[in-house]
Amino acid sequence: MCSYCGCRSISLIGRFMDEHEDIVNAAGILQRAADGTDPHGVREALDHAIAHLHPHTSAEELGLFGVLRRNPDFTDHVDALCAEHAALDALAERIRDGETALIDRFVVELRDHIDKEENGLFPAAAIEMDGPDWEEAITLTPVAIRADDPHSHPHDDVRSH
């Protein structure tokens, strides 16, 4: 994960990077579940991973990506990352339907996607965006609520962390 440029100190990027860590950890649990013979364990682990992934990708797309997409220098890159979100969702659905052999591919594609954001888009956004852009991105970014987190509530504002 990126740590060299300081973009993590920007609250919104720091939040997304923290969420990436949670998502990667959940994907690791999914991979370990696939090593066993319990299909219920795979489904449970997949649900756990998706409970982290979906709120995160929605938040990225509505906030940071929405602001960056208006800049012609970023439009194609942001659209490609959004397409990768959709591709990850499609892989997850195939896994849910029983194609557990796709779990390793899902994890590899997920990690590659996160790398593109953390070592490409986030540092570029830190350089390109100014104060009003960041304020707009923060305003447009929903608070990520995970379905499996009993301690998250709609009034919790994780943007201030």
Rank of each mutant, 00 (worst) to 15 (best):
S3C: 12
S3D: 13
C5I: 05
G6F: 07
C7V: 15
S9E: 14
I10R: 03
L12Q: 12
I13L: 15
R15N: 13
F16K: 03
M17N: 11
D18M: 08
E19D: 14
H20I: 03
E21F: 03
A26G: 05
A26Q: 03
G28C: 08
L30P: 02
Q31M: 10
R32N: 12
A33I: 03
A34V: 08
A34S: 13
D35I: 05
G36A: 02
G36R: 06
T37A: 11
T37V: 10
H40M: 12
H40I: 09
G41E: 14
V42E: 07
R43C: 07
R43M: 11
R43H: 15
E44M: 13
E44K: 15
E44S: 15
A45P: 13
L46Q: 07
L46E: 10
H48L: 15
H48G: 11
A49G: 07
A51M: 10
A51I: 07
L53D: 06
P55A: 13
H56P: 01
H56I: 08
T57A: 14
A59G: 06
A59D: 06
E61L: 02
F65G: 01
F65M: 00
V67S: 02
L68Q: 01
R69H: 10
N71K: 05
N71A: 11
N71P: 02
P72A: 00
D73P: 01
F74T: 00
D76F: 07
H77G: 07
D79Y: 01
A80Y: 02
A80L: 06
L81N: 05
L81C: 00
A83V: 06
A83D: 13
A83C: 05
E84M: 06
E84F: 02
E84A: 07
E84H: 04
H85N: 00
A87M: 04
L88N: 01
A90Q: 01
A90N: 02
R94M: 06
I95M: 05
R96D: 04
D97T: 03
G98Y: 03
E99W: 00
E99Q: 05
E99V: 02
T100C: 06
T100Q: 08
A101S: 13
I103K: 02
D104R: 10
R105H: 13
R105W: 04
F106M: 02
F106S: 03
F106N: 03
V107Y: 01
L110S: 05
L110E: 08
L110G: 05
R111G: 04
D112K: 12
D112C: 09
I114T: 07
D115H: 14
D115S: 12
D115Y: 14
D115C: 11
K116E: 15
K116R: 15
E117A: 08
E118T: 06
A126T: 07
I127D: 15
M129H: 11
M129T: 06
M129D: 09
D130A: 14
G131F: 10
G131Y: 09
G131Q: 14
D133C: 01
E136H: 07
A137M: 04
L140C: 12
T141A: 08
A144R: 14
A147E: 15
A147R: 14
D148F: 03
P150D: 09
P150Q: 06
S152K: 10
H153L: 08
H155R: 12
D156L: 11
D156H: 11
V158Y: 11
V158A: 13
V158F: 14
V158N: 09
S160L: 14
